[in-house]
Amino acid sequence: MALAMHMSDGLVSPQTALVFGVIAAIGLAIAASRARSDLDDRTAPMAGLVTAFVFAVQMINFPILPGASGHLLGGAIVAILVGPWVGSICIAIVLVVQALLFADGGLTALGTSIVNMAFLGVFTAYGVALVLRRFARRSRAGLLVTAFVAALLNVVVASLGFVLQYAVGGAGEVGLGTVFALMVGLHTLIGVGEGVITAATIGAVAATRPDLVYLLRGSRPPVEVRGRRTEGAPS
């Protein structure tokens, strides 16, 4: 059984891996400085748990076609629950733990994977969630649909990141058009699965602790939550 889920070393040229490694490092430095304002005594443990949850759910490959499976990337879960800056760090931590502890995802490929899933995926999901935020705040159905669409597009755009990297410095003779069509086709199917899992996750958290859902902050809070929000509001 092969549980490898992420890019191996050697799929793109060393120069390409290096360029994306630098982009990932700069992105993470910016994310770390921006994340601070979203982290407090309550949201910091939440972000830690969300990261552990994404690690767990990434292990669950679900069948999409005969002989092919998919697994969660988690971009929409983190974007909606803890926001894009904290969320991109969550996904990057998952990728680093997988590469260092479980030999899943090449070490030189970490930059490409972080750019694809932690940045392209998370920020696509957050963009979708922002566009649909009014809808998401109005009803439970709206929130679930927002989570589904954000998750679906997060997977597809993350897969396009690989296509871009393959176009820039890919190894092998497989045509770019083939890679593009297969990546987008398969990841649209995976995105449907990710959408369902994401909607279920967001729905469960919103049902018990809506105050811990980043996207819902400041919307129709219960009285006791309003008191806390004022206290914890960014100065």
Partner: peptide, 13 residues
């Protein structure tokens, strides 16, 4: 209970 089939990226590669 996870599927052992290659994931989307592996299927392509």
């Amino acid at each position: 209970f996870a599927s052992g089939d290659p994931d989307g990226l592996d299927t392509v590669t």
